[in-house]
Design a protein around this nucleic acid. Structure first.
Ligand SMILES: [Zn+2]
Ligand SMILES: [Zn+2]
Ligand SMILES: [Zn+2]
Ligand SMILES: [Zn+2]
Lengths: 144, 144
DNA sequence: TCCAGCAATGTTATGTTATATCATGGAGGA
DNA sequence: TCCTCCATGATATAACATAACATTGCTGGA
């Protein structure tokens, strides 16, 4: 958690990005949970922490974090999650548990798994891929 | 298009599903375009066709079509598209062109491509997978 | 026939997510 | 200094989705 924050800070410093208090706070909020969080829930937490709480405050910080690879949007949930493989380029695939709501981030770029393989058959050039699975996580499967 | 409608009708008849006028009309609307359409745009078209146009009208019909495999929701666009491989079970992957907005549905269940391969490494049991790529379609790539 | 049960639709209202727009403030360079 | 850029403040509204309850029309059983 704390380590992720420091890495983000370092990365920003090296790349001329402005890791402002509200951006840091939102990243902290995201990294604190292993579930995805909606913008308005983040907004509540920001208010509790003394920040302003109009929607743009949260959305702007989230945009920054997503743009720079510190967070991801989970499209199926209209929610956000801190990146657990930040820094380098990666191709995430998210596993969303329907029982405990946990979201885990896996790497999708294996030799056996590439959206581009499907796309190329269709003559499509992939720039970004969203892969989100829903089901049961390991612990919830065990408990069943 | 017309063929898809008739197949849907046939499938409903065989499975005790009620292919009502509004459901048929929404499917017709979806199959008419190769781009995804939002619920409120569908609502407008329904009104033009003489149907009621409160939001639940569109959302209920869309729920029915998605539930029964006649349409899909494109999560990144909060929009819907008619299924081009209806009937049997399938694992769609959508290719969304950023230039012309076309959405094409490909089959993701090839030997070289399975979300389950990623998931199983994480001990995750997949029940449903969302795969949506954004980029450039074949024609838009050629024109570039 | 009469009516309970059910699925679909009608209707009103509201909840949730996201963005547009213009104003303000502060750091850094010409 | 003055200008530009970026971030934030603030207000308003757009866009997407559902809750809740009423009504209709069909069907099958008493
Ligand atoms: Zn990541
Ligand atoms: Zn779980
Ligand atoms: Zn399909
Ligand atoms: Zn295109």
């Amino acid at each position: 958690m704390e380590k992720n924050i420091q890495e983000a800070e370092q990365y920003c410093k090296e790349n001329g990005l402005n890791f402002t208090p509200v951006r840091r706070k939102v990243l902290e909020i995201l990294l604190h949970k292993n579930t995805a969080i909606g913008a308005y829930e983040i907004l509540d937490l920001l208010r509790e922490a003394g920040f302003k709480n109009q929607p743009p405050v949260a959305y702007r910080a989230l945009d920054f974090l997503v743009q720079n690879g510190f967070a991801h949007k989970i499209e199926q949930l209209n929610s956000f999650i801190g990146c657990t493989h930040p820094g380098k380029d990666h191709s995430p695939a998210f596993m969303i548990c329907r029982n405990c709501d946990s979201v885990s981030e896996e790497e999708a770029l294996t030799r056996n798994f590439s959206v581009s393989q499907i796309a190329s058959k269709a003559g499509f050039t992939v720039e970004k891929a969203v892969i989100e699975a829903r089901g049961l996580c390991h612990s919830c499967t065990s408990l069943a």
